[in-house]
Design a protein around this nucleic acid. Structure first.
Length: 508
RNA sequence: GCCGCGUUGGUCAAGAGGUUAAGACGCCUCCCUUUCACGGAGGAAUCACGGGUUCGAGUCCCGUACGUGGUACCA
């Protein structure tokens, strides 16, 4: 009885992959994995005017980064290919013609100009956007209004035509959505959507039902922006394959930006990424930053996306992909859209930085350093440093600022922080401290600190008043782990050098 | 305009007729720390509105408002 679980993500290769898209992938993936099913990626490239070179590969790169690998796709193979709709073109026409034969669709010969005229002529105050529907299809040029001989002739002459669905009048079209439950529409407000375009390509509406059928899709998850066109799909399933064959629908809530629907613009305006990875528009050369390049861990990205529209019902918020698979349930997906909050997103990343062993992201962070010409010669030392500063980083890119001073002396010293309390006694202290440091036989944190405190007491200065200047000398600013720890890590010679270099700056 | 979907603190949210309406992010205060974080303790802040139903409504029903999506030979 119960079919094998098969779900699909069906993107159009037209540009960057945004948050909402990845979340749709994620929910598909989680559902499939939880039920031992298959996750398919089908490329919906039926609109040749919007096709963008490289966009398909980019989508797969994003999925790979997120760790959401398809079981079947144009790149991964599978038994239900081809997985690009452009390569399936002949299949759709067959079904469109079947619909005509059964009286559920018709040829329409109206030119774009005629359609435009129709929209203008029938436009009224109450109906500002007239549709090609049951109330006006009999006034247009199609195989319903033209004599059969005329239709034959037009077809024989290879006149450009489209095939439109003939939506019945006065019916209630309803279906049971996994998230919204019972949803229904009055068929009179559903228009006769184009099924097959003049170029022979199917529209989304035809393609999605034909392919979902042929690929044996059991559950269809998609964004809520599709809910309004669901009645067309329901009708098509009814006419073509039978409602009992239809997948279970789940229309996922939208992810909103600070003001309405989340857009690429929001990202630019508010300074957060909306795409999974960097995307450069081929024409404008405009670069849109991605979560990956912003310094997000894929674990965190997945985690935060999962929580945007779903909740386990417990207080747990940090989930690994395995835990998500185990806990996910479509019943707990919310009905309403969620506003994306970058602050919370950063919190997830910070938590994952703390949670994961540094070896997980060492190479990514290393690249941040080498990109800025800081050479990492000792991996063990590098990992050590990362461990030391990880609590201070919310993005992977933060490691650079939090850790550079372990590899090279600070260029700028925040001398303003010490100036007001700086005096000759302190200069004197540090000069003597240099000698003490030189005398330390085995360089370690305890010895460095011991020498510091003894000398401070000897000179009757509170050690606390000397720690900040010392920190500025070594780090350059008011941040970082314990000072003596830092001194220990950077070494005897380097510590002394930095103090020597800083003294004249403080005295200036 | 019409149609669909939605509405618990600033944000994410728990909640399935009876709760002092969880928790998290952010914000504020304090502790820890003579740095910055981490960690810990506390605080401010919410059921869109109006009618019902009910002994009792954030929870059910109806309206209104607001938000959001659709209204293409785009997906």
């Amino acid at each position: 009885m119960s079919k094998k679980i098969r779900v699909r993500f069906a993107p159009s290769p037209t540009g960057g992959l945004h948050l909402g898209g990845v979340r749709t992938v994620l929910y598909n993936y989680l559902f499939a994995k939880k039920h031992g099913g298959e996750f398919i990626v089908r490329i919906e490239d039926t609109d040749q005017t919007r096709f963008v070179e490289g966009a398909e590969q980019y989508i797969f790169d994003c999925l790979a980064w997120c760790g959401l690998q398809p079981d079947e796709s144009p790149l991964h193979g599978g038994a239900y290919g081809p997985y690009r709709q452009s390569e399936r073109k002949p299949m759709y026409k067959e079904y469109a013609e079947k619909l005509i034969a059964n009286g559920h669709a018709y040829y329409a010969f109206d030119t774009p100009e005629e359609l435009e005229a129709m929209r203008k002529d029938y436009k009224t105050a109450e109906n500002p956007a007239p549709q090609y529907d049951g109330s006006i299809r009999m006034k247009m040029r199609n195989s319903l209004t033209l004599p059969a001989t005329e239709v034959e002739k037009l077809l024989a002459m290879e006149t450009r035509y489209v095939i439109r669905i003939k939506v019945p009048q006065n019916e209630t079209i309803s279906f049971n959505d996994l998230i919204h439950h019972e949803v229904s529409f009055d068929s009179n407000v559903v228009d006769d959507k184009v099924l097959l375009k003049a170029d022979g390509m199917p529209t989304y509406h035809l393609a999605v039902v034909v392919d979902d059928y042929l690929m044996k899709i059991s559950h269809a998850f998609r964004g809520e922006e599709w809910l309004s066109s669901a009645p067309v799909h329901i009708l098509l399933w009814k006419y073509l394959f039978g409602l009992d064959q239809m997948p279970q629908w789940a229309h996922l809530p939208l992810i909103l930006g600070p003001s309405g629907k989340l857009s690429k613009r929001d990202g630019a305006k508010f300074g957060f990424p909306v795409y999974a990875m960097n995307w450069t528009d081929a024409k404008s050369k405009e670069l849109t930053e991605g979560f990956k390049e912003k310094g997000f861990l894929p674990e965190a990205f997945i985690n935060l996306l999962a929580m945007l529209g779903w909740n386990s019902g417990t207080e747990k918020e940090l989930f690994s992909i395995e835990e998500l698979i185990e806990n996910f349930s479509i019943e707990r997906v919310h009905k309403s859209g969620a506003k994306f909050d970058f602050e919370k997103a950063k919190w997830f990343n910070q938590e994952w930085i703390k949670k994961l062993p540094v070896s997980n992201y060492e190479s990514i962070v290393k690249k941040c350093f080498t990109d800025k010409d800081v050479k990492i010669e000792n991996d063990e030392y590098f990992i050590n440093i990362l461990e030391l500063v990880k609590d201070r980083c919310t993005l992977l890119t933060d490691f650079y600022d939090q850790g550079v001073y372990f590899f090279k002396a600070p260029i700028q010293l925040d001398s303003e922080a010490v100036k007001s309390k700086w005096n000759n006694e302190k200069t004197d202290f540090f000069q003597d401290y240099i000698d003490k440091l030189n005398a330390i036989p085995t360089w370690n944190t305890a010895e460095i600190e011991e020498a510091f405190k003894h000398l401070a007491i000897e000179k009757s200065i509170k050690p606390g008043e000397l720690q900040l200047p010392m920190r500025i000398m070594l780090v350059g600013g008011k941040f970082g782990p314990a000072v003596f720890e830092i001194a220990c890590k950077i070494g005897q010679e380097e510590t002394i050098n930095r103090i020597k270099k800083a003294l004249p700056i403080f005295n200036a």
